[in-house]
Design a binder for these strands. Structure first.
Lengths: 160, 160
DNA sequence: CTTCCTGCAAACCTTTTGCATGCCT
DNA sequence: AGGCATGCAAAAGGTTTGCAGGAAG
């Protein structure tokens, strides 16, 4: 029974806190939610402006900061494959982690039950209350491994 | 000359590649190796200059880049607790991961066998050849949990 | 009227780079 | 000579912020 408006969860959350649902916030939030992957701030700005042309870059950053602090989105680095920019995705997509191919720069999502167990263990063993877990793997994807000849995955242990 | 000093492993590696062991590289590498924790570039510069005053910031960055590409050091973000700067540590210290307390900003190192298993699983399940794994946990350490009163780990799910 | 939100542009901060110079083999 | 390494300072690139103006409750 698909009765729950999953898609509006973030906006609902904001509303529940008495925060304003301005047209720009709507555009920004909906853009993040509709994106299948992860967005960087610049892309988010551009896409959000398609919904609401008045969206301003500062507002994007301020909204991202808000959503981050409320734990409604996750921030990713994706191994800095494209410079220092950050990427964002809804928290509901959480649970998985990202594999970055250092050769072709593609990002692959993955999950395995061991990841969940790891989190539980860490919490149990350290006494930490865990808010965010960021797991990122850098390597070479199967396709690139084949292309670069079976024996030298990365030329002399070096990339680039 | 029997017995290669573990401590010189990075320098040996560089030498083995025909790279020059200049006084500045020495200072930078030794600083990283002697540091008990993780260093950011600015701190590394300052410490390296105590050994060799001529060390230049650009050289620090270029050396870090070199060591990174050769997989001799790991680069960490530590949940961006202190801005966007990066931290570095020798690869030999690898195997553990970092827990960042979002309240007191302390960094705790941790390891658990499940972490190693996770890496193996990821490799097996995805076919990736893994070069780097970055696992970072953000949350609240036991001490801060107690201080902030047992029931509200983070005020309204928000930090700051 | 008070609080929250936004625009604009300048400021910030860390990291990177161009180019001339210096050093090692 | 021929590379590799360095210095300096400027540039880059992404993110943050001060302050004045605006909208919402």
């Amino acid at each position: 029974m698909p009765g729950i408006p999953e898609k509006k969860s973030i906006l609902d959350d904001l509303a529940g806190r008495g925060l304003r649902l301005t047209s720009q916030r709507r555009a920004i939030v909906e853009t993040i939610q509709d994106a299948q992957g992860h967005l960087d701030a610049a892309t988010l700005l551009k896409l959000a402006q398609k919904r609401e042309p008045r969206v301003n870059r500062a507002t994007v950053y301020r909204t991202l900061d808000l959503l981050k602090r409320l734990r409604l989105i996750d921030e990713l680095d994706l191994m800095h494959l494209e410079g220092e920019k950050h990427f964002y995705e809804t928290r509901s997509k959480s649970g998985h982690f990202h594999l970055a191919c250092l050769s072709c720069k593609k990002i692959l999502e993955h999950d395995t039950p061991t990841f969940a167990r790891l989190k539980q263990e860490v919490s149990d063993e350290t006494g930490f209350s865990i808010d965010v877990v960021r797991l990122e793997v850098g390597g070479q994807c199967p396709a690139c491994r084949n292309l670069s000849g079976g024996n030298s995955p990365l030329k002399d242990r070096e990339v680039l």
